[in-house]
């Protein structure tokens, strides 16, 4: 033992073997398939978001009088500002897409079933957290969409019985959009929500580690010994390659379709066409179809059903003859979500 390793061992008395045992999770063979790396993808993209987001915060000013100009400065004047802002925006888009695909994969492989019900619920919280990050993110640019998106959302919150008015005041820091509103969105976007996200991801990964990855068997797999491969270095290599591919993809998207800026927010002029970002199209279409309190309450019910799905599914499987009902319900829900998103994308109002 060298002097250095003795010194370190005296202060951090962890046995290398034990550390390796703890971190080197045996991974089922099916993770060699690329589409099973969809959980690591949002995690990697989140790191990209933290890095680019911290940098953007060096120049961003969360006040109505300066926010738009500071974003313009980042986009047009700051060295590589256009690149970092575009990467931030595209990584957000890909992150939401990857989270949704990850959830679909978990759903259709039944990976949420006992004993993993709690991790499904943690995943739901992560989905909500990610969507809220998306919402607060585009509110910060202070273009027309930012202003009216926030105003419409606050009005939607207002229609919730009992707590609606309170939620609206908490969101806007007052009865209406005012000069303290942006600071709220900024703190939520850059501190509170990422903090929650980190904590939830830690729980998510800890639960995966405790329960192990769901084991699936594909017909074409070689009959290996136990069908496992070591996390280090095999799966790390996979994740490294995914990371590099994502960086290339993000850079290409940022270069070919850089983040632009809409017109400056104008409280006096309601835009002709008001639409949220694409990931809220389905919610927005639903709200327009139902209207008012019914829409908000039904949304709440849908989210509750999604949270409780592992238990509802277990009940289906125990008490009814439709053991594989979840597949058909999932297919129907996915088609409905895609359909409503496309619908909202195609129509002007």
């Amino acid at each position: 033992m060298t002097a250095l390793s003795r010194w370190i061992d005296g202060r951090i008395p962890i046995e290398p073997g034990a550390l390796r045992e703890l971190t080197n999770e045996p991974v089922p063979y099916h993770l060699k398939r690329w589409w099973f790396a969809l959980g690591g993808t949002p995690a990697y993209l989140f790191v990209v978001q933290v890095v680019t987001g911290v940098l953007l915060a060096f120049y961003y000013q969360p006040h109505p009088s300066t926010a738009y100009e500071s974003v313009r400065y980042i986009t047009e004047d700051a060295t590589f500002g256009w690149y970092l802002r575009s990467v931030h925006k595209w990584a957000a888009t890909l992150m939401i897409a990857a989270v949704v695909l990850h959830q679909l994969r978990v759903y259709f492989t039944g990976a949420y079933r006992k004993p993993r019900e709690l991790n499904w619920m943690v995943g739901m919280l992560l989905l909500i957290c990610t969507l809220m990050l998306g919402f607060t993110g585009y509110s910060l640019v202070f273009e027309q969409l930012s202003y009216w998106g926030a105003t419409v959302s606050a009005n939607i919150a207002d229609t919730i019985p009992v707590v609606g008015g309170f939620l609206k005041r908490m969101l806007l820091a007052g009865e209406a959009y005012n000069e303290r509103t942006l600071a709220r969105f900024f703190v939520l976007h850059a501190a509170v929500l990422p903090g929650f996200l980190v904590a939830l991801v830690a729980v998510h990964i800890a639960l995966v580690r405790i329960q192990g990855v769901t084991e699936l068997r594909f017909r074409d797999e070689p009959p290996q010994e136990e069908g496992k491969f070591p996390f280090i270095p095999d799966h790390i290599y996979t994740e490294l390659i995914i990371g590099l591919v994502l960086m290339v993809l993000l850079s290409a998207l940022a270069t070919l379709a850089p983040a632009t800026m809409g017109p400056l927010a104008d409280p006096m002029t309601t835009p002709e066409e008001i639409k949220p970002e694409w990931f809220f199209y389905v919610t927005f279409r639903w709200l327009k179809l139902m209207g008012g309190t019914a829409a908000v309450l039904s949304m709440g019910l849908i989210v509750f059903v999604m949270f409780a799905w592992p238990f509802i599914d277990a009940w289906f499987r125990r008490r009814t003859p439709f053991r594989e009902a979840s597949v058909w319900i999932g297919v129907a829900a996915t088609l409905l979500i895609i359909g409503m998103t496309v619908w909202e994308a195609l129509v002007p109002h």
């Binding site: 890095v51 940098l55 060096f58 004047d77 700051a78 060295t79 590589f80 500002g81 970092l84 960086m247």
Partner: peptide
């Protein structure tokens, strides 16, 4: 990527 980050932080022009 790291050099891009550094260039972004350094005051522009």
């Amino acid at each position: 990527f790291g050099s891009v980050l550094g260039r972004f932080l350094y005051p522009a022009g």
